[in-house]
């Protein structure tokens, strides 16, 4: 999972989640490692920041139908990230539902970086996504009946936020 906790939820409208970036995460040591005389520069990869937004927005979309739909990220319409996120910072994803129908959904979202040394929150990016309800979209294809998209990890995060009733 690329989010740690849900902090705000407005049913069918908005979901906010946070991710704490830590030097103890393995992936950050490869992005970017020391090379020759150049020292290491560990920053959160932007691709994973976008994935964090996709998970935040995906939970928002999935919650509308009680997580019965298989909600899959279909398109990154726009992604702009303007600052590096260093270990020790927190990323806050604020996702809003723009449109939704039986075929899928479109979301917009902002990304903030919280710097705990100053207490400041800085807007660092915007992401627009399109999700597909794959059972309704992939003509002629069949998928497993159980919802493999929203796994136990998603349910754990929902439970931590007191939102487990959304899965009922």
């Amino acid at each position: 999972m690329w989010i740690d906790a849900i902090t705000d939820f407005e049913s069918g409208k908005r979901l906010v989640a946070v991710k704490n970036v830590s030097l103890s995460e393995d992936h950050i040591h490869d992005h970017f490692p020391a090379q020759g005389e150049k020292s290491a520069m560990p920053v959160m990869p932007n691709s994973l920041i976008v994935e964090g937004m996709a998970q935040t927005a995906g939970i928002l979309v999935g919650s509308v139908n009680g997580f019965r739909e298989k909600v899959v990220l279909a398109k990154i319409t726009r992604a702009v990230i303007e600052r590096d996120v260093l270990p020790g910072r927190t990323i806050r994803y604020d996702a809003s539902l723009e449109r939704m129908d039986s075929a899928g959904a479109a979301t917009t979202g902002t990304i903030e970086m919280l710097d705990h040394s100053t207490g400041e929150a800085t807007l660092i990016g915007r992401v627009e996504l399109v999700f597909s309800h794959i059972d309704n979209n992939m003509s002629g294809m069949e998928f497993p009946e159980h919802n493999f998209v929203f796994s136990d990890n998603f349910r754990t995060i929902l439970k931590s936020a007191g939102l487990e009733s959304l899965c009922d």
Partner: peptide
């Protein structure tokens, strides 16, 4: 194929103010 869903959503947004809530500019699947 997935662009058609995106295009549908964006067209709905582009023309939503031209229609009333009773007869919205809604593109069905």
């Amino acid at each position: 194929s997935i662009d058609f869903l995106d295009i549908s959503f964006q067209l709905e947004k582009a023309f939503e103010d031209e229609c009333s809530p009773e007869t919205p500019f809604k593109i069905e699947q």
